[in-house]
Design a protein around this nucleic acid. Structure first.
Lengths: 389, 389
DNA sequence: CCAAATATGCTTTGATCTTTACAAAATCGT
DNA sequence: ACGATTTTGTAAAGATCAAAGCATATTTGG
């Protein structure tokens, strides 16, 4: 079952295993005494003691010498996971903006850099901006590229295992871009490129409205509809990275859905196409009949695709996210009503609360997961940035 | 990551872990020498020796004393997993038949009992037949109920976590049946009730055409269409057990698809509705224009639902199974053609080869998985039937 | 100031795996 | 047929690690 069961385990490996369990315990509940760790891991106090000291020696943990202590008895040393031992990047390369987040190993965000980009920017220009944003983010936190342990970049459109954008993307000329190769020149750490919807789903489970669920359908609703799927607590990419692309099926009217908003009669000439949807939502909120009809038709079409996903996966939660989630007050109830009509078992339908940063936040989380995977797979030697492959 | 990393591991647990790894190694490649096991597990030869002898003592393994030996050197004792230490049942409760398979812990089928049932049989009658079949199967192999370590029963229609049939089933009155409670009177082992499509998918990955794939969409094609999903090598039930029920969405024309066959013009009056599809497939094979048209329309509608599943999950393989898989020669190529048109990334499309037993076979596999899960989770004490909960 | 409570450090004990060594059993070459 | 070679079985020694127990240190509360 576990990979440990397939291969024999000797004493050093046992020690490593127990060290890892202490690391986990340290990360879950910060500053802990040896006794607390002993209780949480089930290991004996002396065992925890030597392991904790080993972790301090290796640089994985720091000691808080006893100071003011409210409890009775001799004050205990407290051990703390050294979250600052490494940092990870999460970057969202969108059509209009690039957003980079830098966080420590506990996921605390220490630097945020945002930069607008022209929607029609060619790859070379967009990559240059990406480099600027990443440089500013890393340097702004006083870090060097070698301090970065993992990078995840979110892009629009399905992505294959090598990080190449396939099938479709609204970014001009983007299919020829190899982001891993581009960033790999300056960063030796693992670099992952992933679809924005999938990452937003991850964020929603990490810090959003779906943190209690293991089976999640995330809808990225905007001028383009997308979906991210979390099944049994794990983000699913599909065999070729194209999971969730239900919008490609014409019988499911996802492509048309936003058009109902854009083509709504009554939108003033002065409103740009990009802002038409927001105008329609506002008008609907104020009671405009045409706008309400457009929103109604939008939700009806959106629900068909959502129902296809829900019927396929039977999730616990459907999260309504993306740009349109600001108008969730208008969408959520009719969406629930339509899903009730179309689905067998009705899932929870919730509106995203993370806003525009959710994609970058999900990228950050995937970077953290990448670090964790390597840590718990390869074992903890010394806290230095892992190398690709 | 692994559950072992969360909780501390002490010496006895280490021994148990290594014992389990030996059990796995034994099961993967039968009769093995200590040296072979040592190489496969990475453990030292003496360690493997004491563990193997311990397994023999506990009843998990048997020794084959050295006999004729072609290799040079002193002939080695060979250890063998005692597959006969326990047995599991896989039962398919269909509309027209009940089929029970009994297998040892290696999955070798030792008893098969099949019994036809009237389609309109009431629950009481069907349950009585089920009891008869199971009794005959267990007794026929010379076993007692206490020798059975796990039972899985396949039924048509979605099933919740408690094994209750929900939403829909063609079995009359079946929604009121609690199979776990019914069988629990005579069997103390774990009893699982699962949807037939899902189990057939499992069988196809175990012994069928999809044994190389981890991401599989299985289509159970017959007078009713169903689907079973395997994602990352694990059968997915969905949060409420209703995963794969894409047929409920009207925009996806799964409900109508078989009707094209049943309502095909030219079917003789003498052919019963149940056999109409087979007649149409045969006629199409012989060049009948109306029949070919009906098959064409059938495939077109089938493909829409399949495409919804494929676009959602992006599987490696789509398996065309169920009763109509006998006519795969007529369906496979047009199905591929339609999917190519509708999908982004084209999966492998393969026809099932397991035939009518695939559902019971999948039930057997789920029973084996259940036993394995308990074994590798709870550890190996003595080889006796596990208790429910 | 003293007893109770709690935390730490150290030692002993027991369990486990690995390494090393050697005898036993079979085959191969002469 | 007989010794060399190879492989297995087993025993002893060494190393690593966790558990248990005990002495010591430090704070709290009276």
């Amino acid at each position: 079952m576990t990979e440990l069961a397939t291969t024999g385990t000797d004493l050093p490996r046992l020690r490593e295993l127990n060290s890892l369990s202490i690391v986990r315990a340290l990360r879950d509940h910060p500053p802990s005494t040896v006794t607390e760790l002993s209780q949480r891991t089930g290991l004996s106090r002396p065992a925890v003691d030597v392991i904790a000291q080993g972790l301090v020696n290796d640089g994985w943990a720091t000691v808080l010498e006893p100071g003011a202590n409210s409890a009775v008895g001799r004050p205990a040393r407290r051990y703390q996971f050294r979250a600052g031992a490494g940092h990870v990047l999460g970057v969202d390369v969108g059509v209009h903006k690039i957003l980079a987040l830098l966080a420590d190993l506990d996921g605390n965000i220490v630097q945020t850099v945002r930069q607008t980009v022209a929607a029609e920017a060619e790859p070379a220009e967009r990559l240059a901006e990406l480099d600027n944003v990443i440089n500013a983010c890393v340097a702004g936190a006083g870090k060097a590229p070698s301090d970065i342990w993992a990078i995840t970049v979110a892009v629009t459109g399905a992505v294959d295992a090598q990080g190449r954008t396939i099938f479709f993307t609204p970014l001009p000329g983007w299919k020829s871009v190899n982001l891993v190769a581009h960033l790999g020149v300056r960063f030796g750490c693992p670099i992952v490129v992933e679809n924005d919807c999938k990452l937003a789903a991850l964020a929603e489970r990490w810090k959003g409205v779906a943190s209690d669920a293991d089976d999640i359908v995330y809808l990225l609703a905007g001028m383009r509809n997308g979906a991210g799927l979390i099944i049994d607590g794990v983000l699913r990419r599909g065999f070729g990275g194209a999971a969730g692309e239900i919008g490609a099926l014409k019988h499911v009217r996802w492509l048309n859905a936003p058009a109902h908003l854009q083509n709504c009669p009554g939108v003033p000439e002065t409103v740009s196409p990009d802002d038409a949807a927001a105008w329609v939502f506002n008008a609907a909120r104020e009671g405009d009949r045409a706008a309400r009809g457009a929103v109604h038709r939008y939700v009806k079409d959106l629900a068909v695709g959502a129902a296809a996903l829900v019927l396929t996966l039977d999730p616990q939660v459907v999260v309504f996210g993306g740009g349109f989630s600001r108008s969730a007050d208008l969408v959520l109830d009719p969406l629930r009503h339509e899903l009730q009509r179309l689905c067998l078992r009705m899932p929870d339908v919730r509106a995203s609360t993370l806003g525009a940063d959710s994609v970058a936040l999900g990228a950050l989380k995937l970077s953290l997961n990448e670090v964790d995977d390597r840590l718990f797979r390869a074992g903890l030697s010394a806290p230095v940035a892992p190398r690709r492959q």
